[in-house]
Simulated assay, not measured.
Amino acid sequence: MKKFKIGYRTVKTAVGAAFAIAIAHYFDLQYFSSAAILTILCIQTTKKKSVHAVYTRLIASFIGMAFAYLALETFGYNPLVLGCMILIFIPTIVSLNVAAGFVSSSVIIMHIYGEANFTLDLFLNEMALMAIGFGTALAVNMYMGDFQKELDRYLCEIEDLYSSIFSEIVKYLRNGDTSWDGKEIIEAANILNKAKSLAFKDVENHLTRKQNEYYLYFDMREKQLEIIERVLPKITTLPVMVQQTNLVADFMEELAENVHPGNTAKRFRNKLEIVKEEFAKMPLPENHEKFLAMASLYQFIEEMDQYLMIKQSYKGIKKKSRKKAITQS
């Protein structure tokens, strides 16, 4: 059984429905309770979705009224005419990409069918119901929760996990420790999925914003995670430990201590070049196993260069809530 929870969207739905029905009743509109239905149908998870919901339902309702007037007034108010009208009405709103407004428009159409007489007063009544229902939905949906604290938390969790992963690599390289179960990889993937979804919702809550800095950040981290997953087998399957292992371990240890929102990618890429130079100075492998180990280590540092390159190309996040602007790289 799921935990009982009242979210802010539920609260907005309840408040919006109550206000819509109260306003419609105050103006003594026919079918005043329908204003609440129209409001409920437009409550969405983001501002952009709310605006789009109102748009589709408004257009569909206008088309529905036009179809109802032409069909029912011309051929009579009977179930067969209504069914034939809906048979044409649905493909019409689908072709206009406003099919989501079918239920809302059906409410209006049923009012007209129930009255069996399309008058100016009925038309104005339905217009008022739509104005109150859709307007109330827009008003309550203009309030959306602030996701920044949660996004910051995801950011910190990801960086901690990456640091842990690199530390486990160092343990293996220094001590041959194979006790790590790799759970941080799975945790990081799960957090990135949640974080990107939340960052996308944040974009949808800003009507003029086309992208989110957090989304770009988590997308960058996701690309890095793909590299981490790809290079782990190159390290964890070394046939023997060679002299170059300590070089890589030293580099990864320093990298593990510096997984943070600082612009350090260029510096670490320079350090990686020094590691490559040291590789070249070391004696050639004595046997096939050492050759394979050296090759795997070299492939690993090449992949880590790609990891850092992805980070270096990232523009960054500027957070007003922090004392200093943070540049992700």
Rank of each mutant, 00 (worst) to 15 (best):
L38M: 08
I40G: 12
L41S: 12
C42K: 09
I43S: 04
Q44W: 04
T45W: 09
T46Y: 09
T46I: 06
T46Q: 07
K47Q: 11
K49V: 03
K49T: 05
T56L: 01
L58W: 02
A60Y: 00
S61N: 07
S61H: 05
M65Q: 12
A66Q: 10
A68E: 11
A68D: 12
L70K: 00
T74P: 08
F75K: 01
G76H: 00
L80T: 10
L80C: 00
L80M: 13
V81F: 05
L82T: 01
L82W: 02
M85K: 05
I86Y: 11
I88Q: 04
I88F: 15
P91S: 10
I93P: 02
V94M: 10
A99W: 05
A99P: 05
A100C: 14
G101V: 01
V103A: 15
S104C: 14
S105H: 01
V107T: 12
I108T: 07
I109W: 03
I109R: 08
M110V: 14
H111V: 05
H111I: 10
I112C: 02
G114R: 14
F118Y: 13
T119Q: 12
D121G: 01
F123N: 03
F123P: 10
N125I: 01
A128R: 05
M130E: 04
A131M: 10
V140I: 12
Y143S: 08
G145Y: 13
